[in-house]
């Protein structure tokens, strides 16, 4: 098994954190994993991205030329990365901030992650709603392991942060069940 995921959005949407949480959850499960960020200069309103590779075997290049899954949180990122998705690959799209034309060559999970996050009460957790959606769509990492990672990295004593992230993750996970 090898799963190559590109995660992209605008600066501030938490795409780096999304990738790191995903990578740590994969590590908790004993899988091989690499996380590789865009580390160059980026512009406000532009795109930021990271690449996560999860496998049960040794991973070669952490740089992804053809992705199995794209997690896209805004329109400029969709334009920049849609060409990197393999045929019949999975697109997880934040429909609050990005729209895609009718499609045939990919499997699309399009949900308003930003709106969901605002309903929960914190716009910043849109990334975790997208991660929940990924977890249920691809069944590569378990939600309970993502929750373990939340607990290990959340600032001690700040239960509210933990709560909103957990709620976003669970809401994201439920989306695929209609």
């Amino acid at each position: 098994m090898i799963e190559r995921i590109i995660i992209a959005g605008s600066g501030g949407q938490g795409v780096m954190l999304l990738g790191k949480v995903m990578a740590q959850a994969a590590m908790v499960e004993g899988k091989q994993v690499t996380w590789f960020p865009a580390y160059g200069p980026e512009v406000r309103g532009g795109t930021s991205h990271c690449m996560v590779t999860i496998s049960d075997q040794e991973i070669g290049s952490p740089y992804i030329t053809e992705a199995d899954t794209l997690i896209i949180l805004n329109q400029p990122s969709l334009e920049k990365f849609k060409g990197k998705l393999k045929r019949k690959g999975t697109l997880i799209l934040n429909s609050s901030l990005a729209k895609i034309d009718p499609y045939t060559k990919m499997q699309v999970f399009s949900f308003p992650f930003t709106d969901i996050a605002m309903q929960i009460g914190n716009i910043k957790v849109a990334n975790m709603a997208a991660l929940g959606c990924f977890a249920s769509a691809k069944k590569i990492i378990k939600v309970k392991n993502i929750l373990k990672v939340f607990k290990s990295i959340a600032p001690a004593g700040n239960l509210e942060i933990l709560r909103v992230n957990q709620q976003a993750l669970e809401e994201g996970q439920k989306l695929n069940h209609g």
Partner: peptide
């Protein structure tokens, strides 16, 4: 190299 430096792994 830059990849080795930036890439995270267990």
């Amino acid at each position: 190299d830059g990849i080795l430096g930036q890439m995270m792994e267990p």
